[in-house]
Design a protein around this nucleic acid. Sequence first.
DNA 1: AACTATTGCAACCGCCTCTGA
DNA 2: ATCAGAGGCGGTTGCAATAGT
Length: 298
Amino acid sequence: MGRGRAPCCEKVGLNKGSWTPAEDMRLMAYIQKYGHGNWRALPKQAGLLRCGKSCRLRWINYLRPDIKRGNFSREEEDTIIKLHSLLGNKWSKIASCLPGRTDNEIKNVWNTHLKKRVSHKEEKSSSSSSSEQSNVKNCNVKLDNQFGESKNSSQEKIEIEIEFEPSVDMSCMLISDNDDIDGVHSNFAEDFDKVVVSSSSSTNSYSSSDYNTNQEDPLWRSIMDEEYYPLMLDDDNDHEKNNNNSTKTLGEEYSKNEDKSKEWLANLERELDLDLWENEGSLQCFNDPVSCYFQRTL
DNA sequence: AACTATTGCAACCGCCTCTGA
DNA sequence: ATCAGAGGCGGTTGCAATAGT
């Protein structure tokens, strides 16, 4: 007895399993009004019989206003596949590149659909001598979490070494001193601290700050203008140019959408037949949605 | 129609990391 | 430097929906 880690909270008497619409409403209304400074204290303050972690998860994965619902687009799936090949099972990192999608959702999509698709594709490419060959001969991604002064440091060093076919007189090394790749940039090199490009005639090393000043260098341009980067991850060559939205981080999207959250909440209410807003519709009700809602349902 | 197998996804669990005292 | 509390993350589970027999 007494072995193992203590539970995150006292679970006796707490609800488990699926959330009811009433619980959702209570959580949303509370966060709408007070925010979520302390998840552990939140359920008690909001009058929810749930553990703080459960509330956090419910909010992040389902109730947050900026959640994008519906099936993943082909572009999103491709992005996940590419990022997964780069980062592995770093679902939160992948999610940070897909505004409105959660790590849990991405993990589920990967496990149920994309993993199979990728393995099929790999089988296909290894069994057939396809004529559609990438110019990339080899690509090694190295994640080194020993990097940094402290073992507690969250920093990881990421090195991507790209070896091209002999017909392409070039090799490339991308080095990032931390793993905070925080968006799908239109130019991926912004994420890396150092880029070393070699050809038979020269070897040049650039820092990310060189980007604007070295765009005239043809080798630099070859790498930086996404001429080769997509190839190393995907042979399909069906890369549509990312639109401006793709450069936004989740945080930016969130703050942008914050203003829409009230409208969204009202829509959800209607969806759940809890049409508080339409029936009550008053400012008073909006200011104290929790008590208003529960008064109405009592 | 009834049963079984498979799939998809929300939610949970427990470990890891961060942060502040 | 150490410790504890809280949040974050990734793996796993459980269950409802759907497909197949």
